[in-house]
Design a protein around this nucleic acid. Structure first.
Lengths: 155, 155
DNA sequence: TATCGATTGTTGACATATCTACATTCTAGG
DNA sequence: CCTAGAATGTAGATATGTCAACAATCGATA
C-alpha cells in the first residue's frame, strides 16, 4: 500500500479519514462476499438467483398480494428494476400480477409457493452460516439497528 | 469487538429468527439504498459508475500496478467480473494492463489519474453524507470491525 | 368537472454481472 | 527435464440492472 500521500485531514475535511474510507470499503466488500456466498449456496441447491429469493420471500410475507411500489421500497430497488425482474419471474411462472387502478399487485403462484418452501430452509442455512454465526445475538441486534439507520433517513 | 459466544439455537433451528431475518434484509436494503444514493451523486457529477470508482480508488492506492487477482480480492469480486469490467475501463482509456507471467498488472493511465482527482472529493462527500453522518466516530469503528468479520473468515 | 402535477408502472437500448468453457503460466513431484 | 494440478485470465452467451422516454391513473384545486 502506498503511504506517502498528501493526507493531512484539512480542517475542511474534504476527503475521508482512514476510518471512514475503511468503513465504506469494508461495507462493500462484506456485501459482495456475503452475496456471493449465499447466492452460491442457494443457486447450487435450487437454481434460483439471489434477487429471485429476495422477491419471493418478501412477497410471501403478505397474503393476497403486495403493491409493486411497496415491494420496491422493501427491497430498496427502483421501480424499473423491479418491473423487469418481475417480468422474468412471471414468465417462469413464479409470480402473477394483477392490475389495480394505476398500481399492480404481486402474488405468488402455486409454483411460487411450492418453490419457496424448498428455498427457505436452504436460504436460512446459508444466511446463518455466512452472516449470523460470526456474531453474538446482541451484536445481531446492534448491527441491524445500525444498518437501519442507513436506509431510513431520507438524507 | 467481543468474544464469539455461539448461538443458543433452538433444537430445530431450521429457519431464521425474526432478529436474524431482519438483520439480513436490513443489510441488503441498506446496501441497495446506499449504493443508489452514492452512485447517483457520483454519476451526476462525473459520469462514472460505482464499480468504476471502486476500481479507480483501489488501483490508485498502489503505485506501480496491482495484480488483477489481488484487486479482485480487495473488491470482493470474482475474476471474471473484474476482467470484463477492466476491459471496458481500458477501452475508455482509464486504466492499462501489463502482462507479467500468468498475471496482469493494472495501473491508471494519465487520464485515469486525472479523473480520480475529480472524483475523490465528490465521492468522499457522498460517502460522508450517506454513510458516515448517521454514526458517531466510535460507531464507525465498531461497524467497520463488524463488517470485516463477515468478509474475513473463509466460512 | 376540467386540468395539471404527482404517482405508478412499462418499454427498449444499453451497461453490467454471471456462467461455462477454455488458454496460459506457475509449481511441485517424479 | 516432464507432467499433472493449481492459479490466473479471457471469451461468448445469457441474465440482470440502469437510463431515458413514455403511458396510464390518481388527486387536488380552481
Amino acid at each position: 500500500m502506498s503511504t506517502i500521500d498528501s493526507r493531512v485531514e484539512p480542517a475542511t475535511a474534504e476527503l475521508l479519514s482512514d476510518d471512514e474510507r475503511q468503513l465504506y470499503f469494508a461495507f462493500k466488500r462484506a456485501q459482495e462476499m456475503l452475496r456471493a456466498r449465499i447466492s452460491d449456496d442457494v443457486r447450487a441447491a435450487t437454481g434460483l438467483s439471489d434477487p429471485d429469493v429476495a422477491v419471493l420471500i418478501h412477497a410471501a410475507e403478505v397474503d393476497g398480494g403486495v403493491r409493486q411500489s411497496e415491494l420496491a421500497s422493501l427491497l430498496g430497488w427502483d421501480r424499473t428494476r423491479l418491473s423487469h425482474h418481475l417480468s422474468r419471474m412471471q414468465s417462469r411462472g413464479l409470480i402473477e400480477r394483477t392490475k389495480v387502478g394505476s398500481a399492480v399487485e404481486v402474488s405468488l403462484t402455486e409454483a411460487g409457493l411450492a418453490v419457496i418452501d424448498v428455498v427457505r430452509p436452504i436460504h436460512a442455512a446459508a444466511v446463518r452460516r455466512h452472516l449470523i454465526e460470526p456474531f453474538t445475538p446482541s451484536q445481531v441486534v446492534y448491527l441491524r439497528e445500525a444498518l437501519e439507520r442507513i436506509s431510513e433517513p431520507g438524507a
